[in-house]
Design a protein around this nucleic acid. Structure first.
Lengths: 101, 101
DNA sequence: ATTACATATCGTATATTTGCGATAATAAAT
DNA sequence: ATTTATTATCGCAAATATACGATATGTAAT
């Protein structure tokens, strides 16, 4: 990609909002989050059974959601229990709410 | 990409929400929408002056926002006046609001 | 130390996104 | 019909995203 050299200076929250939106920009990730909300928490393996996707693919989606801060993992050997990160979830909620009027 | 042959059947609204999120998944598009909201409407040329981006790039972002239904263009020759599509905006607002709890 | 289980990461292939300059299209005015 | 102003589209290059199978990692139990 030919990127413009000067990197754009956006107004406050613009990039944070875009980052959250990007994490939500795939139906599988929305579905994962819906599942997490309804179950409050669940294991990677549970999700692998829900979707017709490879384990590695599900894991990658979880990684992105984790990087965005929307979920967090808790070690429950040999499993990992994923839950909504409520603190960041609320931040996202408020950002979207303000933005969308 | 090696896509799974069976295409996933998501629950209602999941794909609609992901589609809106995708449209918002770039800071420039967020910024464009913020600008449109504050001005209520504006021309492509105005936006080209606001961002250090080529005219074609801005036009492409506008196209994506239009495809997502978040904005609409009105012919004002030789210009085009873009405004928020309030109807779809409200739909997006309600989808995000419900999803984010 | 070895094994077993669950999950993450790596390597790879393909698709999509982002950006640019150049060109085409559109509508009005001359 | 030509010109002018504005915006959209095309063609390309590079970056990122998506998906998979294979492999590595981490933890507990044996």
């Amino acid at each position: 990609m030919k990127r413009s050299l000067e990197h754009i200076q956006y107004k406050e929250n613009t990039e944070a909002l875009a980052k959250f939106a990007k994490a939500l920009a795939h139906p599988t990730r929305i579905a994962i989050l819906k599942h997490l909300k309804s179950q409050s928490c669940c294991f990677t393996g549970d999700l692998v059974e829900v979707f017709p996707l490879a384990q590695s693919t599900v894991s990658q989606h979880l990684k992105e959601l984790k990087n965005a801060g929307l979920i967090q993992g808790e070690l429950k050997p040999p499993k990992i229990k994923y839950c909504i990160n409520q603190e960041n979830w609320n931040i996202a909620k408020s950002l979207f709410n303000d933005f969308l009027d």
